[in-house]
Structures are given as C-alpha cells and as structure tokens.
C-alpha cells in the first residue's frame, strides 16, 4: 500500500470515504438530531472534537498498551471505555470552564458517548494500520465528514418541513431515510478517488 499523507487522508475521510454516508455509522444521532441546523451544528462540532481526540488517544492506548502486551483482541472494550471516560471528562471540564460553550456543545456530549461512528473510527484506524499522524488525520477528517453530512441533512430536512407537503406515512424517519439514501448515492460518486484501505 502506498503511504498516504496527512492531507490525503483528511480529504478522503471528509468526502470520498465519509464515515456516515459510505459506512453508515452513527446513524441514530444522524436521524435523531437532524431536524434543525442549529442542533446539527452543535452535535457536529461535538463529534468532530471527540473523534479527533479519541482517535489519537485510542491510538496511543493501542500502540503503547495493547500491542506490547499482546492484547489486541481487547480493543473493542478498551476503546469504548476510553471514549466514555473521555467524553464524561470533557463534559465536566466544559461545564466548569465556559458556560456558553457548555450550552452550545456540552449538552450534546452525553448523546455521543455511544455513537458508533466514533468507535468505528478507532477500529478502522487500527485495522488499516495507520501511523500516529495518519490516525490523527483520519479522526479529524471523519469527524468533519460526519458533521458535514448531518448539517447537510438538517438543512434539507428543515427546508422540507417548511416548504413541502410530505405524504403522511413518510413523515419523520421515513423521509429522513430516503434522503440519507440519496445523499449516500451522491457521495458514492467520489468512491475510488482515494483508496483508504
């Protein structure tokens, strides 16, 4: 495999290999919190921050603890623990340090503790055997990609509810899933531009 640079991975994680639209990870909060652009922005920024930070943290835990001790098979449970603890800690710190920031971002943190996109990023990064720098790029890029997708989705849904008459049976999750599918189709056009695996 040809070594990919920081920016190549960053770009591909945002667009060509968007974790939400090509891997379908993190769907629950994607569908649940995409009614308004404002909420989507808050949740999106929280996810960017948490994926970027936890991919680096998990890489360190993986490389410094799990690999030397030959405990790679424990990565699922360890990654989840790291993510949960990190999210809790960040929530407490934000709450204490800055109230405006807590109100904009902090209240979303508990929602994403168990977001599978975040665990997915950490797992992909070890499966693909990234270096530390690559892992950081991949974490940041995936977060940005996820945020981009949910903000786009919220924009579409906000407009839909204001402007169009949706058939009754399709209101809510029904139409949201159709939109998500269409978006995923559009993003598939990028597929193959950069090979991540």
């Amino acid at each position: 495999m040809q070594e990919l640079g920081f920016f190549a991975i960053l770009f591909s994680a945002v667009f060509t290999n968007n974790i939400l639209l090509t891997n379908y990870l993190g769907m629950c909060s994607f569908l649940g919190c995409s009614r308004e652009i404002k909420t989507a922005l808050g949740l999106g920024s929280a996810v960017i921050f948490v994926t970027a930070a936890t991919s680096v943290l998990n890489w360190l835990v993986y490389a410094c603890i799990l690999v030397p001790l030959d405990l790679v098979y424990l990565r699922f449970i360890v990654f989840i623990v790291v993510i949960a603890a990190f999210v809790q800690l960040v929530e407490m710190i934000i709450e204490r340090v800055s109230e405006p920031l807590y109100n904009a971002l902090g209240i979303f943190l508990p929602l994403i503790t168990v977001n599978c996109a975040i665990l997915g990023v950490s797992l992909f990064m070890v499966i693909r055997e990234y270096t530390f720098k690559q892992a950081a790029a991949y974490g940041l890029g995936s977060g940005v990609g996820w945020a981009l997708a949910i903000i786009a989705m919220a924009g579409i849904r906000q407009r839909l509810t204001q402007r169009s008459r949706i058939p009754r049976g399709l209101e809510g999750p029904g139409i949201a899933l159709i939109i998500a599918g269409t978006m995923a189709l559009a993003f598939m056009g990028f597929n193959g531009m950069i090979n991540l695996s």
Partner: peptide
C-alpha cells in the same frame, strides 16, 4: 488485570 487497571484508572480520574 489490564482491563481492570484501565477501568480503575479512568474511574479514579473521573
């Protein structure tokens, strides 16, 4: 013991 150590460390930290 590694799992316990990691969990305890985080619990204490929190």
């Amino acid at each position: 013991s590694v799992i316990c150590a990691i969990n305890t460390a985080f619990a204490i930290l929190l």
